[in-house]
Design a protein around this nucleic acid. Structure first.
Lengths: 123, 123
DNA sequence: TTTTATATTCTACATTTGTAGAAAATGATC
DNA sequence: GATCATTTTCTACAAATGTAGAATATAAAA
């Protein structure tokens, strides 16, 4: 079962930290912060959905991700590519390169990355 | 206001065609097709949200997109980058390059694209 | 050990979404 | 003009979502 929008948002915070207590997570929200029970509800739902686990420590729980961000994202992006680019990563790349606001710096970086990857495959 | 999942799906069909009548859209669904009223509901909601318009022709309407796919997608992808890659397209690119199933062919294509874009910026 | 602070769960409720039947509208056909 | 076919709108409803108060549990502090 998928994470909802706001669960995903919270998940980000957990990924960022690797682990976190509820109150720490609450901290991370920009003002106006949600009610703590709201976060608690989300945490419970996310636990039920199997995206996070926790270790009970004293009176509270330290939550941690059960799903790697890269895995979650990977599913996500492949969906996206499928949906918007007729399942062609190349189409996507093309779009990506021209339509996002990459600086020249970043383009060069990307060039490096591609080269690297090509090299990697040849050894 | 954003399109929901199933509205987005329908939007794809409309983008693909440039324009379409309700019954044509219904056709495009794989079996089991939804009830025609379901599609009709979606079309109405999408119209209300301002994503599509229509031209009345005889007893029915020819719907067409009011939002370009590339624009819609652009917003989408920039969101994604922001959410998952700390607002760094380069991070994203890196991930993209290594984690999607690009063939060597496609990687080279991407290389071309980047090069092209760099060149373009220098003239 | 009583009180307090806070985390967790329960309950609640409005909104959005997916889905579609019932009803209405209206052009097409006989 | 009456009937038919089909589109569109209305109405409906269950499920998911965003949000949070009330109630409960329990560790920490006094």
């Amino acid at each position: 079962m998928k994470l909802s929008k706001s669960e995903e948002q919270l998940m980000q915070y957990i990924w960022e930290n690797g682990q976190a207590f509820m109150n720490e997570l609450l901290e991370m929200y920009p003002d106006p912060k949600p009610a703590s029970t709201t976060v608690a509800t989300l945490l419970k739902r996310m636990t039920d959905k199997g995206y996070i686990g926790y270790k009970q420590l004293g009176r509270s729980r330290r939550y941690y991700p059960l799903v790697k961000k890269s895995d979650y994202f990977s599913r996500h992006i492949n969906n996206l590519i499928q949906k918007y680019f007729d399942n062609s990563p190349a189409n996507f790349a093309s779009f990506f390169t021209t339509e996002t606001d990459l600086t020249e710096e970043q383009l060069k970086e990307l060039q490096q990355i591609v080269e690297q990857e090509l090299k990697r495959r040849h050894q």
